[in-house]
Design a protein around this nucleic acid. Sequence first.
DNA 1: TTCTTCATGTAATTAGTTACATGATTGA
DNA 2: TCAATCATGTAACTAATTACATGAAGAA
Lengths: 217, 217
Amino acid sequence: MSTETPLTTTSYAILGLLAVRPWSTYELTRQMDRSLGRIWPRAQSKLYEEPKKLVRHGLARASAEGVGRRPRTVYSITADGRRALAEWLRRPGAGPVLESEQLLQVFFADSGTTSDTLATLDAARAWAVERNADNLTTARAYAEGRAPFPERAAQTMVVGRFLTEYYRLVAAWADWATDVVARWPEQPRDAEADPVEMAGTLRRADWSSQGPDGLSR
Amino acid sequence: MSTETPLTTTSYAILGLLAVRPWSTYELTRQMDRSLGRIWPRAQSKLYEEPKKLVRHGLARASAEGVGRRPRTVYSITADGRRALAEWLRRPGAGPVLESEQLLQVFFADSGTTSDTLATLDAARAWAVERNADNLTTARAYAEGRAPFPERAAQTMVVGRFLTEYYRLVAAWADWATDVVARWPEQPRDAEADPVEMAGTLRRADWSSQGPDGLSR
DNA sequence: TTCTTCATGTAATTAGTTACATGATTGA
DNA sequence: TCAATCATGTAACTAATTACATGAAGAA
């Protein structure tokens, strides 16, 4: 009656890290902060729990070390673990999930003031600038061969490019939206949709003739 | 000893809808499927629970109607609710959260095959095409004045533009990545990062001279 | 030596999801 | 009149977060 719960995407995220090399739990949390967290954000405590589940499934092994009087657990992947990971990679996963409190606030702008919305857009831009700075640092490290796991550069670069374009999009959108909203009257409920911008959006959304254009260089 | 839990972003999402007009719970789930879900996705059952919490907080009122022998609850916002909503709008919310199983799979591509990765990229593109088609339909409805709540067009358009650019980004990235990955050997672990693409990404990430360029027309 | 930051973990709680159940309505 | 779909809701469960606790190491 093994009632162990099935693996989740978070399980595979950890398993994937273990396939790179063995990590202590704390090191896993570092990776979450630095890299994994950009595409699969999870709280620190989750990273203490999930590897135990992998062990119960026979996909990872825990080895107990110690630092002074403290315990310290290092996890490594098993052969079964590598198989499970490969199998997961064979099934294309779910599309990206977007969750944005800021967009929600813009969506409900008419329950507040126009300056509220402008402040929210400022926050969105600031967020993008900060993330992008981070991302740029990592990208440079790879380009100059200073990054950990240079053998993973090809894959990392493909993901990194997505993030680069994503942060750029958020910043560019915030700039554009700031322009648009700046022309609103103080009460957003009195604002009218700008027909020029509306037409522009329609053109951008209509791929029927050309498909989406490529990423710029 | 009122131990009621504090409001979450999901609470405000529902409250925002109620500010537009009263809704039955089922109607709320429809909105989630159609519009809200793109920026704040939540399971249907959540939409049956959350309004009750709003009522406990005095921010909404429940009125019990009936359809035949079945109960049916319609929720509407209170004056306190409008105040709470306005206050929330005054505090810029958290930045967008991205969560992508597909990106995770690309990130760990070296535990599988190159064709696995190509399949994942196909799925990503298909996802973007489908979402975009939806989005385009909505955008057209607004442009032609056929959409519900035309008085909300200005705000909706600003959010809609974000989604438009976002879907476009996913599709364009998938196309680009497919090109890049198609040049990988069968084992991703033997792949090397393409220096030209790497340089292109660096240029795109470096806003120091010009800032992010604007949204295209 | 003390303060701060790094490092390691657990406990309590909640937010959210999946699964289920069933009445009402519509159209074949 | 039967089947399919629309509509309404609850129950069980789990994934995930927040909060807490404390030892180790290095800097001032």
